[in-house]
Lab assay of single mutants.
Amino acid sequence: SQTQRTQDENEARRIAEEWKRRGYDVEVRNRNGHWEVTWD
């Protein structure tokens, strides 16, 4: 799996939607004030 971090929730949601469209299983988490998008 791969993880991308961002400070911006909207960006995190956009990234998550992009990977979901490509057929990946995606998880979005808030950790210590930043957002992590993990896909595999």
Rank of each mutant, 00 (worst) to 15 (best):
E18H: 10
R14K: 10
G33N: 06
T38Q: 09
W35I: 02
V37D: 00
D40F: 15
V37Y: 01
R13Q: 08
R14F: 05
R21G: 14
N10I: 10
A12R: 02
Q7I: 12
T3W: 09
V37K: 01
D25R: 11
R22I: 08
Q4K: 12
R14M: 08
W19L: 15
R13S: 03
R14W: 06
D25K: 11
I15M: 08
Q7Y: 11
R22N: 09
N32W: 04
N30K: 13
G23R: 00
V37E: 01
T38G: 03
T3A: 08
R21E: 15
R13Y: 11
D25H: 14
D40L: 14
G23T: 00
G23V: 00
Q7P: 10
I15L: 12
R21S: 14
D40H: 15
I15A: 03
E36I: 09
V28G: 00
V28Y: 03
Y24D: 01
D40G: 14
Q4A: 13
A12N: 00
D8Q: 05
R31D: 09
Y24R: 05
S1L: 13
T6K: 03
E17I: 04
E17C: 11
E17Q: 06
A16R: 03
E17P: 02
R5F: 12
W39Y: 09
E27L: 09
E9T: 02
R5S: 10
R5C: 14
G33S: 05
E9A: 07
A12F: 01
E17T: 03
E27I: 14
V37A: 02
N30Q: 14
R13P: 00
E17W: 04
N10V: 11
R13E: 05
V28S: 01
T38K: 08
Y24F: 12
S1A: 12
D8W: 06
T6L: 11
N10M: 13
G23A: 01
E9Q: 06
R5V: 14
D40S: 15
S1D: 08
Q4G: 05
Y24V: 06
E18Q: 08
W19Y: 14
R5I: 15
R22M: 14
R29M: 10
T6Q: 04
A16N: 02
V26Y: 02
D40K: 15
G23W: 01
V28N: 00
Q4H: 15
W39S: 04
